[in-house]
Design a protein around this nucleic acid. Structure first.
Lengths: 205, 205, 205, 205
DNA sequence: TATGAATGAGCTTTCATTCAT
DNA sequence: CATGAATGAAAGCTCATTCAT
């Protein structure tokens, strides 16, 4: 099993990568992309500045990698939740709750994720695709979940799963940004209930 | 009519201001705040760099002024449309359509508006308030419009107008960002119809 | 008497000049040459910025004119005092007292005078001559006063009047800067007494 | 001998520091603080501009460091001379000569030292203390030397050592500025002789 | 004369990136 | 692999000076 070799080197490398990405996430979240400095990321990561450039070829690269890692974690959690949810209603609830809890636990990450998403349209056409994919992967996952729900409810109107997923995605995003920006007035449960009720009513015949 | 005096100077000043704000909007939209340079704004505005600082005291100031001016225009249009819409349904439609049309005509502006909104949570607590107010003014205007609709429909569920407004706001924003980011697949009408239908269904008993 | 004409214009011009020089003196004294702005001088003088350039051709020019005007006032006072002082001792005392009182009343002026004097050696070789002349005129006036004292004291050692004047000038300057910089610990009288006593002892056989 | 380690890095650092301070001294002396540019200092020092900011955090910082280093050198020389001078007369002579020789060798330094001293009163209350201390340290050193001279001369008048030191300081400064500004007419020896003679006469009963 | 809006060269400072050790 | 000193392009901002009114 050749893939199992070189463990020492690989482990170290992964350790460094994780260290750097963690530092990057927290610094970028605190300062935003432009105001974050490579110096600070290196310091927080506990490595020399030059070392960052051994693993990533630019500041933007570090940023995107941190973003990707965070989204990956979220996607993994979603996949897990979907696996044990059977009805459309349960899956939508799973989607909303998972995102809300995730970003509540990682407000820092939400900031860079959302911020990058927002400014993707501007300037950098390069990251355009990356960001779009990041978004589509989440929405797509929900759309799939809706489409393939084993016991798809008959009471639902025949709406395009993509669009329904987009709507739920937007409302969730709204909930999160509301909580992040305005220090939510209501409890999570209350907010989730309102959105789910609203969506359910919208979906039903 | 004493207020009408000094026209020459005032007119020139307003002309400059408009010139600068227009240039700022387009440059910021194209590059984002951090990557836009004061030099370029000046060049596009057709004035010397120093002139910018005659009217605004910093780069950020120019940015916020451009943002504010844009939002003001949008708010004015909303107010106008609400004046001639009587039912809740009409007002919601007015809200969605106005925003969509506005940002479709000014995708550049949407980018800076949205981007700033997005990153308000990050870093700059200073702009926090400004951005929040910008948002609340729009949502609040719709909430008010819903609350005060002369012939409030009896068929509506007794939902909190603020929350309904927030939901409509989010979905509209989603529509816009979808169109801006992913070059929408459907026509405006189609998308509006979907959202309105969905919302209406969600609102009804 | 043709010189007496045009009074209105001349009076206004002199008024402006005085206004400007007064403002300049106070601003330069407060901020130093480099940190003073033409804008502020104009504002304090109560005229438009462009007006300054009608009377002086550069910021430095304003500075030097303010300096010259101040020194001229001092020289006038010295001349007056010397006229009524007959012995060498009286003239030296007159010199020290006049300068001390003058700069005590005009600490602002002392700062720019001294500062310019100090930095004359540096940078601006142009002002070199100007500053040197300003200095020599004061010292020279005392040297002359010593040389021509009607009842030159026989008890004095035959020292070079120029050098004696220079010594007295330095000690006076020291007194003044001490008072300006370190908020003198002793009273003026006490300090004057010490210096005069010391000088007198040094001059006597 | 652990203190002796890291020599390579430390030596390089000290070398850079010396290089920068030397360049700074000469540029500041030639142009004055305001007219000197960081660019030129870097160029003269033979390093990139950014490097300066690796060692000092601002232009002013570089300036003060250069000033401090120069004064330190002078103080060291004074201390050394005092150590081998026993009588009050010898110490005063040592003081005068050391300063004169030092500033004759380093006219550039005199300019920035004196210039800063001069403008301390103006504007920057921050440097006030620094400059005052720089001055007091020199005067204080002479005052101490006078107070503690092993074979204090009985022929001296009981004058306050601080004041005597101040007088000698002023006269020396006068001598130096005379030489710097007016390209002294007399030889150093002649001038020193005059001042010492004068002071001695002033001190004696 | 007087004005003050406009100019733009020039300044200090920052920081992503490189590379000799 | 890791380091961190060195780099230098690039940016925001200031302000003496000009000139159309």
């Amino acid at each position: 099993m050749p893939a199992g070799r070189r463990t020492k080197r690989d482990v170290l490398s992964e350790f460094r990568t994780a260290e750097i990405l963690g530092a990057a996430r927290s610094v970028f979240a605190a300062k935003g992309f432009a105001d974050a400095t490579v110096d600070e990321i290196a310091q927080v990561a506990g490595v020399a500045k030059g070392t960052l450039y051994l693993y990533y070829k630019s500041k933007r690269d570090i940023y995107l990698a941190a973003l990707k890692a965070g989204v990956q974690t979220l996607l993994d959690q979603l996949r897990e939740r979907f696996a044990t949810a059977e009805t459309v209603a349960e899956r939508i609830r799973a989607f909303v709750e998972t995102r809300l809890v995730y970003f509540d636990q990682e407000p820092a990450f939400f900031r860079i994720y959302y911020s990058e998403f927002a400014s993707a349209a501007a300037a950098a056409p390069a990251s355009h695709r990356f960001v779009r994919d990041m978004y589509l992967e989440q929405i797509g996952m929900l759309a799939d979940a809706i489409r393939t729900a084993p016991d798809r409810d008959r009471a639902l109107r025949p709406l395009d799963p993509e669009r329904v997923a987009a709507v739920v995605g937007e409302l969730t995003r709204g909930l999160i940004s509301d909580r992040t920006l305005h220090r939510g007035r209501a409890t999570v449960e209350d907010e989730v209930r309102f959105v789910l009720d609203f969506v359910w009513n919208g979906l039903s015949t």
